[in-house]
């Protein structure tokens, strides 16, 4: 098959970018989408042009490295897959495809299709963990976890941190990502002691990183390669309300009653 490509080229964060047209030929249906780009890059190298930079690593949909928009759809729009799992058999000879990086203020473009997603790490740093210093853990089976809680936690923990949810959201919101981590940890008995603080801190970190807020479009769930459900955002909001009400208030000090 022959494919027409329109690819966003940008040499670094500071310089402006633009779309450029390419044509790749001799693509077979058993190739993956990224292998199609490998072929393009071989051609470009042979011609002395800079290959297209795109992030990828495991090429089996688990590491979360890859991701860009294909004709405006994150990861190509196929249900429950990353762009590295896309097979060329889903495309037709002569198709025109526009490839561009995730578009969000919090994800600056580094080069071509590569963006900086370190804002996600900073959200995790704000509270996306259970504090359990090495060596201090109790015997594993002393913590009973109801099967249903373990399943919910797992469904949420399946998030690969690719950023498609942000790219698809009209508000560039990171709420599906953050809600997934909160649902994972807040569903488990081990996560209860830090539940309120974790929720407050991670929600605050989202705003700090310039992500927008959820207005229930549902685009995030539609493109999520791990099919994280939007209900988790509801969990997060409930936990946020709970945490806000349970927040310890400062003790009131009445003048003249302090001990010397």
């Amino acid at each position: 098959m022959d494919i027409k490509l329109k690819i966003w080229r940008q040499s670094n964060t500071a310089s402006p970018g633009q779309f450029k047209d390419y044509q790749v030929t001799g693509i077979t249906p058993d190739m993956s989408f990224l292998e199609m780009l490998d072929v393009l890059n071989e051609d470009l190298t042979a011609r002395g042009e800079a290959p297209v930079a795109f992030e990828h690593d495991c090429r089996e949909g688990i590491c979360g490295s890859c991701g860009f928009l294909v004709n405006g759809l994150a990861h190509g729009g196929r249900h429950g897959t990353t762009v590295c799992q896309l097979s060329m058999r889903f495309f037709k000879d002569g198709d025109s495809l526009a490839l561009e990086p995730w578009r969000a203020k919090a994800f600056p473009v580094l080069r071509d299709l590569i963006v900086d997603r370190s804002a996600f790490d900073r959200i995790i740093q704000a509270g996306g963990f259970i504090s359990a210093n090495t060596g201090s853990a109790p015997e594993a089976n002393s913590i009973l976890v109801p099967k249903a809680s373990a399943e919910t936690a797992f469904d949420a923990a399946a998030c690969i941190g690719c950023g498609a949810c942000v790219a698809a959201c009209p508000n560039a919101s990171a709420m599906l990502f953050t809600a997934a981590k909160l649902t994972h940890l807040n569903s488990l008995p081990q996560g209860q002691p830090q539940r309120d603080q974790r929720t407050l801190n991670m929600v605050a970190a989202m705003s700090r990183e310039l992500f927008g807020s959820c207005t229930n479009h549902g685009e995030c769930e539609a493109v999520c390669p791990k099919q994280i459900p939007i209900e988790f955002i509801g969990n997060m909001n409930r936990d946020l309300v709970r945490a806000t009400f349970r927040r310890r208030r400062e003790a009131i000090v009445v003048a003249g009653t302090q001990r010397a």
Partner: peptide, 11 residues
């Protein structure tokens, strides 16, 4: 296993 369970790994 003890350590990972304490961290919240959803086994």
């Amino acid at each position: 296993i003890d350590q990972c369970v304490a961290q919240g790994v959803p086994f």
